[in-house]
Design a protein around this nucleic acid. Structure first.
Length: 397
RNA sequence: GGGUAGGUUGAGCAGGUGGUGAGCUCAGCUGGCUGUAGACCAGCCGCCUUCGGCUGUGGGGGUUCGAUUCCCUCCCUGCCCA
């Protein structure tokens, strides 16, 4: 039965518009909410998952595959496209949408994650980051202004402020330092952003420290971004730490009408628990990467298609799945393709995992729309599957 | 028949001219991947009752305290010559 919903909220930016169609119920049973994000290239129903297309391509897929899997918005990467083929070239070729033949909304990550995660030869200072290309070792420099300029050249629907994530396990001093820098860079990103047909999201950092995270959420929320990203959380934190941090940040943003985007998380269980805690948008390489590496997500768990037991299995990976893999091929065939190193394996597996993930989000939205999300949690959790190996270890430890 | 090069864990190779063999690449088995330097990475991969034990460098014999290594012999494979 429908629970009484809090009043709907709306955000009107210059280019982005976000309406909460079904707000979190007043009884506090969940913070999950149903929304509609309007961007220049289309509408995104939230909660929503964005497949990652780092190099202007979702690995192994044609854009038609991505759309068929149910994606309405994808992510592309500023750092990678800046290095190759170059943002100016993409601009000359008509912008990112035309370049990669994806007509729907695109969000570009600012490159902060790469610049920091690429390790070794990089130096962060208060003005920006000097780093070496992972492709040819050449030296480059990103500042908030440059990261914005690159994103404006790419021309995605949504650009993201340049930030400095740090591993969640970092010391408080390191987190505090990076968070303060992220705040200054957020101001500079915002000031540098000119493009009137492109939204801009700000990023909350603060690690796992409650004070720093809350302070960061409040700081970023006070700025006129079109959306709020929660960064620095797809790292080495435990599930409990992650969820506590999301709870805290969303609590600070509770009355904020803008979309909330949790960066980097993408397992079905992560998606569900984060929606439950009030998150609207997600991105992650996980479903596509594990697919390429042979792991297929199915209701209640996963199948490792490299296991010998599938070599004689005539069943589809998931009988009721509409994806190109499950419609026509057996587990035995996919297992064979992986062993043979056939490229088709990567496409079919990726199609499936993205279909599964995006269908899972659709189920979540359906429950939210019906006002039955909280009641559906057990069923959705069951579908999301058992704990990952690491979480299982945490549990038994 | 003569000559020659070889026979090492499923395959292909290393190594080793007296002092406890077994490394590499495939293949095989399993696990991990979360704002993608990832179609990747890690572990296992002779046998067993696995904190240990056993076997093991084509077979057999010999020399030796000790042989994969030296000697004899046989078998098998490739190549060359008859």
């Amino acid at each position: 039965m429908n629970q009484p919903a809090a009043p709907s909220t709306s955000f009107r930016g210059r280019v982005a518009r976000f309406d909460v169609l079904v707000g979190a119920p007043a009884d506090g049973s969940t913070r999950g909410r149903l929304g509609r994000l309007e961007l220049p290239h289309g509408v995104v129903e939230t909660p929503q998952f964005m497949p990652v297309g780092t190099n202007a391509a979702v690995k192994a897929l044609d854009p038609e595959d991505v759309a068929a899997a149910g994606a309405s918005i994808i992510l592309a990467n500023t750092y990678h496209l800046y290095l190759r083929p170059g943002h100016e070239r993409i601009a000359r070729l008509g912008g990112l949408h035309r370049f990669m033949a994806w007509d729907g909304p695109i969000l570009t990550d600012s490159g902060g994650f790469q610049v920091v995660s690429l390790g070794d030869l990089r130096v962060v200072d208060d003005d920006g980051v000097t780093f070496r290309s992972h492709l040819d070792g050449s030296v480059h420099r990103f500042t908030p202004e440059h990261a914005i300029a690159v994103q404006e050249a790419l021309g995605a629907d949504v650009a993201v402020a340049f930030d400095q994530p740090v591993p969640p396990s970092s010391s408080r001093d390191v987190v505090a330092d990076a968070t303060a820098r992220t705040h200054r860079w957020a101001e500079r990103s915002l000031a540098a952003h000119r493009r009137v047909d492109q939204a801009l999201f700000g990023i909350v950092q603060g690690g796992l420290d409650p004070d720093l995270r809350a302070e960061s959420a409040a700081f970023v929320a006070a700025m006129p971004f079109d959306g709020i990203c929660l960064g620095g959380l797809a790292g080495d934190e435990t599930t409990a730490e992650r969820e506590a941090t999301i709870d805290l940040a969303v609590g600070v943003l509770a009355a904020d009408p803008r979309p909330r985007y949790l960066m980097g998380l993408g397992s079905p269980a992560d998606l569900l628990e984060a929606v439950h805690r009030g998150i609207d948008l997600f991105d992650s390489v996980l479903p596509a990467r594990v697919a390429r590496n042979g792991t297929l997500w199915v209701p209640g768990g996963k199948l490792n298609m490299r296991n010998s037991r599938f070599l004689d299995d005539p069943e589809p990976v998931q009988a009721d799945c509409p994806c190109p893999l499950c419609r026509r091929f057996s587990r035995a065939y996919l297992a064979h393709l992986f062993r043979a190193g056939e490229l088709l394996a990567y496409r079919l597996a990726t199609c499936h995992n993205l279909t599964f993930t995006l269908d899972f989000m659709a189920r979540i939205r359906t429950a939210l729309r019906a006002g039955t999300f909280h009641a559906s949690l057990p069923e959705l959790r069951s579908r999301a599957g058992r704990l990952s190996g690491r979480e299982a270890v945490e549990k038994s430890a």
